[in-house]
């Protein structure tokens, strides 16, 4: 069935393989980071990779994630969960720009917080439990 990679943006699939080694194309699609000679890059930012975490055209995303200081965990098999580094989460909040998100309503229609720009908004959580 291949690997399942869970991120905050959603669920992704990748072909079976060793650990969380991904092709450069899959890595870019799933994480937004691009494998370049200087390391893994997103926008202007490049993070060098240890030699053990890359081969031509492939990258060990678990090792890269650890290098970012971001959490990664697996079920011991083919399901992986990639998280956000705590310092990135905190930095995003400290801008005071309300972190955006898109979620469905009961009918499956997607809404984004940013759709409400221009209104004072009380963002409130609840649950049935």
């Amino acid at each position: 069935m291949g690997r399942i990679i869970l991120t905050e943006e959603g669920r992704h699939e990748a072909p079976s393989g060793t650990g969380l080694w991904l092709s450069a194309a899959d890595a870019l699609h799933i994480t937004g980071w691009e494998l370049k000679p200087e390391g893994m890059c997103r926008g202007a930012l490049c993070v060098p990779l240890p030699a053990s975490a890359t081969t031509p055209g492939e990258v060990d995303i678990a090792a890269f994630w650890a290098k970012l200081g971001a959490p990664v965990v697996s079920d011991g098999g083919e399901v992986w969960s990639l998280g956000v580094a705590p310092q990135d989460r905190r930095a995003a909040l400290e801008t005071l720009e309300a972190p955006d998100f898109s979620l469905p309503d009961l009918d499956g229609r997607m809404h984004s917080l940013s759709d409400l720009r221009g209104k004072k908004t009380l963002l409130v959580t609840w649950a049935s439990w």
Binding site: H111, L116, K120, T121, L122, V124, W126
Partner: peptide, 10 residues
Amino acid sequence: NFTVLAIAEE
């Protein structure tokens, strides 16, 4: 100029 945005953590 106000709205509630309710999120069910469900």
